[in-house]
């Protein structure tokens, strides 16, 4: 089997990769809100960091960890 890492993006994504991607989008949204909250010294910035940004990041990270556990066989096979 050839080295799969050099495969271009147009190869069909596995379910795990789609989960990974979703986790990434959620983490990214959380980090974006965190960045915005650092640019403003205000109680509302503090609150958005605390109750929106950080929970999103934590949720995304948990999804990422779950996607490792739910690793489907196809990816396992193709990644070896």
């Amino acid at each position: 089997m050839p080295e799969r890492s050099r495969f271009p993006a147009n190869t069909k994504r596995t379910r795990t990769e789609r989960r990974l991607s979703a986790a990434g989008v959620i983490v990214a949204a959380g980090l974006l809100i965190q960045i915005l909250s650092h640019l403003w010294i205000h109680p509302l910035a503090f609150m958005s960091f605390l109750i929106i940004g950080t929970p999103l990041v934590v949720l995304g990270v948990l999804l990422f960890l779950l996607s490792l556990i739910w690793h489907d066989e196809i990816t396992l096979a193709s990644s070896e």
Binding site: E3, R4, S5, F7, P8, A9, T11, R13, E17, R18, L20, S21, A23, G24, V25, V27, A28, L31, S78, S79
Partner: peptide, 15 residues
């Protein structure tokens, strides 16, 4: 994170 979110294929290699 965005790199992984938009190019999850990257994870096909061990690196």
């Amino acid at each position: 994170v965005l790199l992984v979110a938009f190019r999850p294929e990257l994870t096909r290699a061990r690196g």
